[in-house]
Amino acid sequence: MLPFINILGFKFASYGLIIFVGIFIGAIIAIFHFSKFFDISKEDIFYAILYGIIGVGIGAKLLYLLTNIPFLIENYQTLNLWNTLIQMLQGGFVFYGGLIGGFLGIYIYSKQFKISFKSLCLILLHVVPLVHSIGRVGCLLAGCCYGMEYHGFGAITFHNSFLAPNNIPLFPMQIVESICNFIIFIILLLTYKKFIKTTKTIGLYCILYGIVRFILEFFRGDLIRGIYFSLSTSQWISIVLIIFGISLFVFEHRKISKKKSD
């Protein structure tokens, strides 16, 4: 749709631009709104966000490179390895790798400067779906993460995309996932007063996003989705995420009722 934007003669990838807009808005909400409920300074949250972003970049990229090792091994004789590595550095990120890397970055910050990891996670987790939601708009502009062929309401047709199939009406995957993520953000926002200091927030996010991702995967049309036993890799990860979320909910609920009975 619009993979690159020219600003003052510099060529920016619209996906990168949109992602940073999302991170900026998310950081402002985390620093000025959610920080009030925890005993952590605004400065520490800002630094933790920086560490988290670095972790996201490294984690998403590392997992992407790891998944491409078979390709490099298979084709090392015919490829210019250096050029291929540079091209791989430029493109390709794995969301779940980014999620793990981001939390790892925050963990390193919390250990380095002795700040509660749980509190930092709880603050930042609230804005993850918002950033993700805005990021999907970037996907729409770049033309990646597109849906399957679809002729119903809201179908999107790309004409000059080098990623999505051109001139074929597609399911508006990016828009639907963006809206779903925004709804998750609203739900977390509505429940934060009830759950703010408990791991129920993490559980709620894992369950909601797991369900959304599991269902939406059926409508995706991009790439080969790594199917194992009729389900894509993302769907298997979503199942793990949902189970993890439910167990967190149950565990926290039992902890609270035990405290009350004591």
Binding site: A13, G16, I19, F95, C139
Partner: peptide
């Protein structure tokens, strides 16, 4: 911003 073009922001390990 100049680098991240989302050439394949794949959802998981699905990319082969």
């Amino acid at each position: 911003m100049a680098l991240i073009a989302c050439i394949a922001c794949v959802g998981a390990l699905g990319q082969t």
